[in-house]
């Protein structure tokens, strides 16, 4: 059957593409299904300077290289699809995309990574691209001499708050706690920057404007007081959440909705493995995603081989 594969990989980020490279090279018939653009979070990264053996590379280029490497070994990749049904518990796994095409496989690797956390405040969707941004390097220069807010208290929020002072006349960091989660040197640098000030214990509850964003309502979490602030732009940099919504109630997840795996990247369902940022782990990097993808692929190849009793060519 044309739609039958040995392994289906869900997600084409660093973890999924690595698994695709290993499996296809071992002649395991592999399909990668990806909801967005191939590359996942790598594409969000302007420059990767800590991938061993490659001094400096744009995330896009690294993703493109991984994609073509996987395809050269015969891996099929379908991107910009939507998974509309998934059946993992039976021996033959089944994945339907766009409500119309169904694929089956002996095993599945889940490498769905993570996505930017949104605030969920009123008006957030409406003003995306009209004052609200999730990418400081992309959109910073639209805010030359303007007043902006950076939401968040982690490394990216404070690092970007400093870098946005190249453009903005004033940067207000709005953070929900009374202390930061960022490394001390990022906090120091932000505190020493005269253009940056801070609103702690605070959260944005509403974005407003006509054709573009021009104000936010901020709630102080201690007093409950709400204040209004006129603003030209808001950068939301509050971390990432795992893309595991479709797996809830199917696969065992931890309290943060991350997939629980063992040392072989096996989940609680036989024949289902997981790798990369969507699993429960401490450090989320390209290198760790690549390592997880490798382990998942090798474990999965072994599983498929044992199921089929075919020679293994890893």
């Amino acid at each position: 059957m044309q739609n039958n594969y040995d392994v289906i990989i869900i997600g084409a980020g660093a973890a999924g593409l690595t698994a695709g490279i290993y499996l296809s090279r071992a002649k395991v018939k592999t399909l990668i299904l990806n909801e967005g653009a191939v590359g996942g979070q790598m594409v969000l990264t302007h420059e990767i300077a800590n991938y061993p053996g490659v001094e400096n590379i744009s995330g896009y280029e690294l993703a493109r290289n991984m994609k073509s490497q996987a395809q050269k070994f015969g891996c099929k990749i379908r991107s910009n699809i939507k998974i509309t049904d998934i059946q993992l518990t039976e021996e033959i796994k089944q994945v339907t995309i766009n409500n119309k095409e169904t694929f089956t496989s002996d095993a599945v690797i889940i490498s769905t990574g993570g996505k930017s956390r949104t605030i969920g405040a009123i008006g957030e969707d409406k003003f995306k691209g009209l004052g609200i941004s999730y990418c400081a390097t992309c959109d910073g220069d639209f805010f030359q001499d303007k007043e902006i807010i950076v939401v968040g208290g982690g490394n990216s929020a404070l690092e970007e708050a400093v870098s946005l002072t190249k453009y903005a006349s004033k940067v207000t960091v709005v953070h929900q706690f009374d202390h930061f989660q960022a490394f001390e040197h990022y906090v120091e640098e932000a505190r020493n920057n005269p253009k940056i000030n801070f609103k702690m214990d605070s959260e944005i509850v509403e974005f407003s404007g006509n054709e573009k964003l021009n104000a936010v309502r901020i709630r102080n979490k201690i007093s409950g007081d709400i204040s209004e602030m006129n603003i030209d732009g808001v950068f939301i940099l509050i971390g990432y959440v795992p893309n595991t919504e479709m797996l809830r109630g199917i696969i065992e997840l931890n309290g943060n909705n991350e997939i629980k795996v063992d040392n072989n990247m096996a989940t609680n369902i036989p024949g289902v493995y997981a790798a990369g940022d969507s699993i429960a782990k401490r450090f989320r990097q390209v290198t760790t995603a690549v390592a997880d993808g490798t382990i998942a692929a090798l474990s999965c190849a072994e599983y498929v081989h044992n199921n089929k009793k075919e020679p293994l060519e890893v």
Partner: peptide, 13 residues
Amino acid sequence: GRMGPMCIPVYES
């Protein structure tokens, strides 16, 4: 656009 993270997915689509 540019070759940036918000643009690349649009080109790919």
